[in-house]
C-alpha cells in the first residue's frame, strides 16, 4: 500500500509519543512491590511474597462470581514488619494507573493475595498482588461497588502518617 512521506513521519511521531506516554509503566518492574515510607523505599520481590504466603482459604470471589482458593499474607503483619506499625493511611498506586489513599488497615481481615487456585497471580488475574477481605460479612457480592476498596495490581504502597 502506498504511503506518503507525510504519513510516514506522522506514524513515527505517533509511535514516539506512545512510547513516551507509556514508558513509565513499562519501565517499572511488575515482579516487585515498592513500599515507601518518607524518603525510604523498600523493594519487595513478588517471588519472595509468594514464598512467604502462609494464609490459605476459600471464599466466593465477587469479581469472578465463583468460589476460589486464595493464598496470601496478612496485610497488617506486612505493614508492621516494614513500617514499624500500621500507618493511619496508605497511598496505593496500581499498574493500571489507579491510585487511591485509604485508611483503616489495622485489621487482620485484609489479605495480600499472591495465589489463586494454587497459581501465582499475574496482571491477567489482577495481580501480581491484590488486596481482599477474607470475610466481607453480609455485603452483597453481586454488587461490586461494595468492594471498591479491594485494590488490584498493586505497584507501590506509601505510608501516610
Amino acid at each position: 500500500m502506498f504511503q506518503s512521506g507525510r504519513d510516514v513521519y506522522g506514524r513515527a511521531l505517533a509511535v514516539l509519543l506512545g512510547v513516551l506516554l507509556l514508558a513509565p509503566a513499562v519501565q517499572a518492574n511488575p515482579d516487585s512491590l515498592l513500599l515507601h515510607d518518607g524518603e525510604r523505599e523498600i523493594e519487595l520481590s513478588i517471588e519472595s511474597l509468594r514464598e512467604r504466603a502462609d494464609v490459605e482459604f476459600r471464599f466466593f470471589e465477587p469479581y469472578l462470581s465463583e468460589e476460589v482458593s486464595i493464598r496470601g499474607l496478612v496485610f497488617r503483619d506486612l505493614l508492621v514488619e516494614h513500617f514499624g506499625r500500621v500507618p493511619p493511611q496508605l497511598h496505593f498506586e496500581a499498574w493500571d494507573d489507579y491510585d487511591v489513599t485509604l485508611s483503616d488497615w489495622d485489621d487482620p481481615n485484609w489479605i495480600l493475595v499472591t495465589h489463586q487456585d494454587d497459581e501465582p497471580i499475574s496482571l491477567r488475574q489482577r495481580g501480581p498482588v491484590r488486596l481482599v477481605e477474607r470475610d466481607y460479612g453480609s455485603r452483597d457480592p453481586a454488587n461490586l461497588r461494595n468492594f471498591n476498596d479491594w485494590v488490584w495490581m498493586i505497584r507501590s504502597i506509601e505510608a501516610v502518617w
Binding site: 509511535v15 512510547v19 507509556l22 509503566a25 513499562v26 465477587p62 462470581s65 465463583e66 496482571l123 491477567r124
Partner: peptide, 23 residues
C-alpha cells in the same frame, strides 16, 4: 518493533484482567 510489542502486550494484559470479570 520489540519495545512497542512489549508495551502493547502490557496494555492488552491490563485489558484482559479488567475484561475477565465473572459478571
Amino acid at each position: 518493533d520489540a519495545d512497542i510489542r512489549q508495551q502493547a502486550h502490557f496494555q492488552i494484559k491490563l485489558a484482559y484482567s479488567l475484561f475477565d470479570i465473572g459478571l
